[in-house]
Structure formats: C-alpha cells, structure tokens
Amino acid sequence: MEKRTIVAVVVFAIVAVFFFFSIFLIHPFGKPGQVNMDDHIIANTQNETGTNNGVTSTVFDYRGFDTLGEATILFTAVAGVLMIFRRVK
C-alpha cells in the first residue's frame, strides 16, 4: 500500500471513532431533550401567522430570512451555470 492510503485509512478511522462516539451522546432517537423553540412554533403558528402548516410558517415566516438566502443560492447557481456555459467570443 502506498503511504497516502495508509495515512488516509488511519485518519479516517480516528475521525470515524470520534463521530460514532459523539452521536451516542446526542439524545436518543425520538426523544429530543429541549424543545422550547419548536413548541413555541407549533403552539403559535396558527394564531401568529395564520398558517396551518407549521413547516411552511417556519420556512417563510419565523425563518424567512434563511429562505431568502436559499432562493439567493439557487439564483447564484443559475447565474454561475449560465456564466460557465456562456459562449466566448
């Protein structure tokens, strides 16, 4: 085996061990610890935003600015793709 492969495997193993170790410290699946932010959204989505869909109200109202960023990302990607495939004189 060449040196690069050995280094990569060792490093890979270390990072994998740490990742696997750390995910067991997250709350068990299905039992989130603290939920105050999300409970607030679920409880108030109907009377604050007038929306039945909690996810839509989060996407467009509570975290609407992220969605603007997301739309911008798509716009950026389109501009980038169009620029890369432009015809050069």
């Binding site: 007038g50 929306t51 839509t56 969605t67 798509l74 990607a77 389109v78 169009l82």
Partner: peptide, 26 residues
C-alpha cells in the same frame, strides 16, 4: 389564510421553476 406566506410561495415557486429548468436546459 396565511398572510404573506402564499404570496411568498408563489414568488419562490416561479423562481424555482425557472431556475431549475434553466439549469437542466442549459
């Protein structure tokens, strides 16, 4: 219902349709 959310949905819908379509097309 929904206040400005349906309006935003429409705007984003137009944007996403045009954006993804233009990517695929080009």
């Amino acid at each position: 219902t929904g206040g400005v959310l349906p309006l935003m949905n429409f705007a984003v819908g137009v944007k996403v349709i045009a954006g993804l379509f233009v990517i695929v097309l080009v």
